[in-house]
Design a binder for these strands. Structure first.
Lengths: 164, 164
DNA sequence: TAATTAGGTAGCGATTCGCAACTAGATTGC
DNA sequence: GCAATCTAGTTGCGAATCGCTACCTAATTA
């Protein structure tokens, strides 16, 4: 049933393994490439091993959604630069969370390259869900609520005003 | 170029909007259903509007990957229960992060239902990337490092031992 | 025992996939 | 300044996957 995800990439990064389980992978993988400093068509193509027409299609889609920005290189007008927009960069927590999940549950080993704190070069912490005041929440601390059941903003607004 | 993602779901949850941009959606959407308390084939089918053969295929895949567990209902032997495993539940931060991204950048409105802290029914915080000691890290605080460049465990092990 | 319900399969046309070959514009080598 | 090369695609093709509808089987209810 599998359609042949490349094994050579699975070894380096858990993301393909995570997406093998989760479904479509190229958009996420292109995004990972962007986060890791890839900027040009040929870089993505050779790094990811994606078919050229699919890559062109996905890049166009990502640009269309405002996740990547497309602009000609000033120094070499054959080249096109693809860069993350703020919107694209905002997918970092999602990316990191998915990658960490793949590390923990699929590959079992840390992916490379590792995302580290620039200050001390230590790997970032596991991405978690937290309460409004920063406590880590786990399964039994969480609840799904309809909008009208959410604690209303009386106290929240009071705090915000107090902080200003 | 779009293949017709249902609009009626986009209104309720930002995840379809996020996945409209990100690619494959059914596995994530089934997972969201699981997080929100769906357990049976027909529930997923009518809630998500997914084709039956695709749903059967995706459920089998998720079960095969150990994300969902499949077991016959003891009280009604026609029914099959699909439940999140620990591995499946571990995708919560990814789900929440992707959903929050969709809320912020695609739909612009909070999704329903809302994930809240059971203690005070306030919505969970935005999922962020943090340092090992919990500081929120942003773009300029982060670095991609090769495994050999990661701060080695001399001090880390020392701390761990000190804590024991 | 007949009708209904739950969880699938089977068949179909349309779309998308990956692969390979080709193209167009810019640049470099000689 | 002309040929070779390099970048970023597009095109054509067969294979796989998609969504839709209809059908099927086992268990339950009337």
């Amino acid at each position: 049933m599998g359609n042949g995800l490349r094994e050579d990439l699975s070894a380096l990064c858990s993301l393909p393994a995570a997406l093998e389980a989760m479904g479509e992978r190229w958009s996420f993988l292109i995004l990972r490439g962007s986060f890791n400093g890839l900027h040009h068509f040929e870089e993505f193509q050779s790094e990811l091993g994606i078919a050229r027409n699919i890559l062109a299609n996905r890049l166009a889609r990502l640009v269309g959604h405002g996740i990547l920005e497309r602009r000609p290189c000033p120094d070499d007008r054959r080249k096109i630069e693809y860069r993350l927009t703020d919107k694209g960069y905002a997918l970092l927590p999602t990316m990191v969370a998915l990658r960490q999940w793949g590390e923990r549950w699929e590959t079992g080993v840390p992916a490379s390259p590792v995302l580290v704190d620039a200050r001390d070069r230590r790997p970032v912490a596991a991405v978690t869900v937290r309460s409004h005041d920063g406590r880590v929440l786990s399964k039994q601390d969480l609840l799904w609520a309809l909008p009208e059941q959410v604690a209303q903003d009386a106290e929240v607004e009071a705090e915000v005003k107090a902080a200003e």
